[in-house]
Design a protein around this nucleic acid. Sequence first.
DNA 1: GTATGATTCAAACGTTCGTTTGAATTACTT
DNA 2: AAGTAATTCAAACGAACGTTTGAATCATAC
Lengths: 229, 229
Amino acid sequence: MTLRSVKPQHETRRRILDAAEELFMQHGFEGASMRLLTTKAGVNLAAVNYHFGSKDALIEAVFQRRLDPMNAARIATLDKLEKEANGEPLAPEAIIRAFVGESLSMIEDAKNGGRNFVRLLGRTYTEPAKPIRTLIGRMYAGTMERFKAAFARALPDVQSNELFWRMHFMFGTLSYTLAATDTVQLIAGFKPEDRHDSQALQERLVQFLTAGLVSSTPGSSTSTVRKAA
Amino acid sequence: MTLRSVKPQHETRRRILDAAEELFMQHGFEGASMRLLTTKAGVNLAAVNYHFGSKDALIEAVFQRRLDPMNAARIATLDKLEKEANGEPLAPEAIIRAFVGESLSMIEDAKNGGRNFVRLLGRTYTEPAKPIRTLIGRMYAGTMERFKAAFARALPDVQSNELFWRMHFMFGTLSYTLAATDTVQLIAGFKPEDRHDSQALQERLVQFLTAGLVSSTPGSSTSTVRKAA
DNA sequence: GTATGATTCAAACGTTCGTTTGAATTACTT
DNA sequence: AAGTAATTCAAACGAACGTTTGAATCATAC
């Protein structure tokens, strides 16, 4: 009847995706069972298989929903910056900001579940299961090539394999920051009020990453911090 | 008979620990089943419960075996450096080197399974299961306090909460580098020959981290890279 | 050699897993 | 209102999970 209000076509799908996002983040892919998941979503146990086919397909759908738009936004930002620059190479910091900003802004999006997803994403970079790694790699491939090219223009005196490693480090720092489980709280006395201030976090992160990415190559240039005490 | 040679007291325990180390790294804690694990170790299915009590206790034992000596070595290195410095604060790079060197040297230890463990460790930092996070946090607590104090002396003009975040970033970069699953290969065109050159990797990593850790605070000092294009 | 404790073994325990089934219900078209 | 497709539902499926059991085997002391 009219009691159950609007049923926007595929509400069940959305409910499942939201619940999966949160539970995969909290318990991992194997730890979040179908029964726990469907109960939290308020749907029947068989709904996942009906709408997605299998649990693996659900995992893929969870990433599809967020990752494709997120990477599209990253590339759009980069395109816009390069257009504004009129052929000049971008500042490394601007490129870094284009890459991490899209993730970090989702942290504040607690209402729409963006926070859940971004933490899930951070954890997934170190996921052992091969199909999931393949999935993530496939979804990121184009974006990574695009950003590597931008960095190569911005940092012409950093060699290609050197740049590869620095992007690797950048990726690691970001993913760990996103995942930010309570491990860090237990390890180093976490200050919860900082965590939600994504603007301050972004400034700290961008500063840290920029310094690391633009640092002079050890073997080449003049002043390095080496030598030490 | 004399056919089976020396049986050094607890060989079964060691075989189980080695197999667990590798399989936990490859498949995760839940993904590596007892049957798979005991088969690889060449022991009976019940051996884990007999020698360790439960699968959870085995997980804990896997970390105990490597983590305690590793952190002890980190602190010993730091003690030695500070003793040599005669009260002078250490160079930040030296502290970083003391921290990451102990992990990276294990990468080359393929024979004794050190590589397996260090990759397992990398992925465990983002492990969702609460008992495991608690375990890791407990095992790291003392070491982190010790290193935070050393960094605080080396970087007197970096505020405490600022320092916390930079150490957080450092931790993330290291753990991701250690985990270094094939994700990175799929994402960015991995060069396998680099991965095993742990010496070159350490130089790159130390350089990246040092630059990030000593970078000037945005709000305070004069020259920052900000502004950008 | 025989007794004692430690370890290994094959088999089974109960539980939970992801998935499937076929009927019941809902939504939509004519 | 009748008919058709889409969705939901309770129930069950076989498989795999971690763990337990009790007898068999081993090592070691007397």
